[in-house]
Design a protein around this nucleic acid. Structure first.
Lengths: 111, 111
DNA sequence: GGCTCATATGTGTATTTACGCATATTAAGG
DNA sequence: CCTTAATATGCGTAAATACACATATGAGCC
């Protein structure tokens, strides 16, 4: 039997994370992170964003549970809990590249 | 050699899709879709959203290449190109459930 | 051609939000 | 204790956007 809705994802909570990830600078910050924690200043340097802005985005990422920040002296070191999220994002990017060929205003050909 | 940034995803384009997906009603619409095309009225009925709003979101989804809409008489039938995106979203939801235990304002314990 | 149904589009609005500036907090060093 | 460095926070603002209302387009029917 064929199901019209093959996959079901919980909308609540998922959209929250998607919204967080949908901000380019936030994604850049996350993307530049690994399992090895780095101080905020490193993220500022790497991204070229203002201190205020990086702190702003890091707070959002941290409160969402996407990154962790451990305190070392006056520094706060941020890193990922695990790389699972980046893997999923890589999958999404891959799917995008294969299935959504540079969307034009009219959308892909109807067929 | 250890890499601090284990995965690299293209930020541009990816954030666009993430932003589109981050809207709850849009995700609901997409989530309610399958490979079998249904008229807009069905989506309106299923979601309980206004006609204007459904049309608004469908346009965004269509222009992004995430859904296709084929015309049949006065009706326009919408459906997915493939279920890959929903699978990825299911993976994300799964990862979320396993790794982000109901984020509180302070974020998960620092470890 | 006029009528009606299905869907799209134009306009206005209220909410969200990313960002910078200024300032507060917290830690190390003299 | 005062200074300096690292990070966070309060406030104001400009831009994005989800939504409703009204209207336009387009197909089928008499």
């Amino acid at each position: 039997m064929k199901n019209t809705t093959p996959h079901r994802v919980p909308v609540k909570g998922l959209t929250t994370v998607l919204k967080i990830l949908s901000e380019p600078n936030r994604l850049r910050i996350l993307n530049g992170m690994g399992l090895e924690c780095v101080p905020v200043s490193a993220i500022i340097a790497k991204t070229g964003l203002s201190q205020t802005n990086v702190s702003f985005h890091l707070r959002i990422l941290r409160e969402a549970g996407l990154v962790k920040g451990e305190k070392r002296g006056a520094f706060i070191y941020y890193c990922l809990y695990d790389t699972g999220l980046l893997e999923i994002l890589a999958n999404l990017a891959d799917w995008l590249a294969s299935n959504v060929p540079t969307p034009n205003p009219a959308g892909p050909p109807h067929g």
